[in-house]
Simulated assay, not measured.
Amino acid sequence: MRPKVYITRRIPSAVVAKIQEVCEVEMWQEEDIPVPREVLEDKVKDIDGLYCLLTESIDESLLQRANKLKVISNMAVGFNNIDVEAATQRGIIVTNTPGVLTETTADLTFALLMATARRLVEASDYLREGSWKTWSPMLLTGQDVYGATLGIIGLGRIGESLAKRAKGFDMRVLYHNRSRKEQAEQVLGLEYKELDALLKQSDFVCVLTPYSPETRNLIGERELSLMKSTAILINTARGGIVDEAALYQALSNGAIWAAGLDVFEEEPVKPDHPLLTLPNVVTLPHIGSASIQTRTKMAELAALNLLQALRGEGPAHRVN
C-alpha cells in the first residue's frame, strides 16, 4: 500500500508529481489561506507523511491524533512551529530545508538594511503622493552604509554570507554567537564581541539567530538602550527574538534611528500593528527566501526529505 501524504499548501506541480510517484497525495488548495486547524486535525489521523510550512502549528495535541505519522517535512530552515520533542517521543522524524536559502536570505537582509538606511520606502511614498516640489539639501537624508560598522547576532550560514556582502561595502563586521568561529574571523576579518559591546559599537545590528526559549526577547528594552541613537536594527530571523513593544518605544522616542523587519511575533501581522504606523520602520511580509529559484529548491528539498524518510532512509536534513 502506498503511503499517504498531506501537503498543507500549494507547492510547484513538478514537486507534487515527484511525491505522487511514490505516495498517495492530498494537498490543501487555497493559495493564500493556511489550512484550517480543524482540517489539519482531521487529515493527520490517517497519513504517513506531513509536508508543512511555518504557518502550521504542529504541537503535541495535533500529534496525539497522528496514529500512523512517520515524518514531518518542514519547508523552512526554522522549525519552531513543530514540537520536536513530542515528535521524537512518538518516533516521528522531523526535517527542514537548510542551505538552499542562505544566499537569497542574505541578499534580502542586506537589501532591507540599505532600504532602511537610505529611507527608500519613505522616498518612494513621498514622490508618489505628490510631495516632491524641489531638490533640498537635507531632504530624506539617511545613514551611510559604506564604511559603517555592522553587528551580526547569530553567525550561521546566513550570517557569514551577510558578512561577505558587508565586506564589499568596506564595513567593519562584529558578531556575537553562542560559540566563537575563529576560522570565519580569519577568512572574513570578523571581530567577536559580547552582545552588549556589539550593541554599543554597531551602526547596524542584524538579528539572524535561531528562535528558541533562550533567544525569545533577546533584544528588549535594555538591549535597545545600549544602541546608538543613529543605529538601525534589522530582523530577518524570527519576530519573537525582538520585543516588539520595546522596539516601538525605542523608535518612537529616538533611542534608535530606524528598523527593518521581515518578521513579526504574530504572522501575518495585523494592519493596525503599532510598528506599521512608524515612518522609520521598513516592513516586509516574511519574504527572506522569496526568489523563484530558492523557493523551488526548498520545495524540492522538503519533498526529498519526506520521501527518504518514508523509504526508511536517513534524511540528510533530519533535526531530531
Rank of each mutant, 00 (worst) to 15 (best):
T104M: 11
N67R: 10
T8A: 03
R65P: 10
F110A: 00
I33G: 14
L53N: 05
V71K: 05
A14N: 15
K68Q: 11
S73V: 04
P34S: 09
C23V: 10
N96W: 06
F79M: 06
A76V: 08
L50N: 05
I58K: 06
I93F: 03
F79E: 01
V77N: 08
L113Q: 02
T95V: 07
V71S: 03
S73H: 10
D46R: 07
T105R: 03
V15S: 07
T105E: 11
Q64C: 13
T102A: 05
L113M: 00
K68Y: 04
K43S: 14
T104E: 03
L50K: 03
D83G: 02
I7C: 03
V35K: 09
T55S: 06
T88R: 15
P12C: 00
D32V: 11
I33R: 15
S13L: 14
I58H: 02
K18D: 00
T102R: 00
E30G: 08
T104N: 03
T104A: 15
V22E: 13
N81A: 13
S73P: 01
T97R: 12
G99V: 02
D46L: 15
L101A: 13
I47M: 10
P12E: 11
P34K: 04
K43Q: 14
A111H: 00
T55C: 07
K68V: 12
G78S: 12
V16H: 01
F110V: 10
